[in-house]
Amino acid sequence: MTDALFTYVLRLADDAAILGQRLGEWCGHAPTLEEDIGLANVALDHVGQARALYSYAAEVEGKGRDEDQLCFLRVERAFRNCLLVEQPNGDFAQTIARQLFFSAFMLPFWEKLTGSSDATLSAIAAKAEKEAAYHLRHASEWTIRLGDGTAESHRRMQEAIDLLWPYTGELFEADDTVSELVAAGIAVDPQGLRAGWLATLSRVLEEATLTLPAQGWMQTGGRDGRHSESFGHLLSEMQYMQRAYPGHTW
């Protein structure tokens, strides 16, 4: 049970840390000043969630590691985040599509997790839920503005939705780790969130005059440490300080 809990919390922590890192890459590059600040704020929420989750994972593991060691001293294959969050920022539409898919899943996920029998996960979820509500609102508004905008913005938003769609299947995967914790009342059964997630997407995409892709083939591997090509580059930048100066502290 301890092993499963460690893995589960680590996956959530990695999702938050990697998406926070990706969004942070927009800082100084976003299309408008307001959006630059907006994306950095969303990134900050994810980094905050990652810190709380890594600290808890370290406590569960009980091997003396801390949040920084888990985030900055693990190699690529040890990361357990889903492939969606590590996908490159691409153009602004791709970033927004990634945000839409992820936040539409995470809002109901955190809502459910507030009912976890694990007090720490429940407390983290209660804070994260409110943040996720803002993230979903932000992504939805942009999806609608771009989809229902010019011919060019419509084309790019649809391409982004289609491009990232195969990475959404992983959000609903439930392996033995998840099943064991669902049975214990600790974890959320992701399968139960699929209908609501599709309903949210359908509503937003319809208003955006965009098309929800057909189910199709889905990518997998992130939860077992098999990542996409760009992931190593992301880590090399995120972990640069600890790789250059091992054990360095502020």
């Binding site: 307001e34 600040i37 907006g38 932000h138």
Partner: peptide, 9 residues
């Protein structure tokens, strides 16, 4: 509303 996010989170 001008932006969902302001000078701080």
């Amino acid at each position: 509303k001008v932006s969902e996010f302001g000078s701080t989170a």
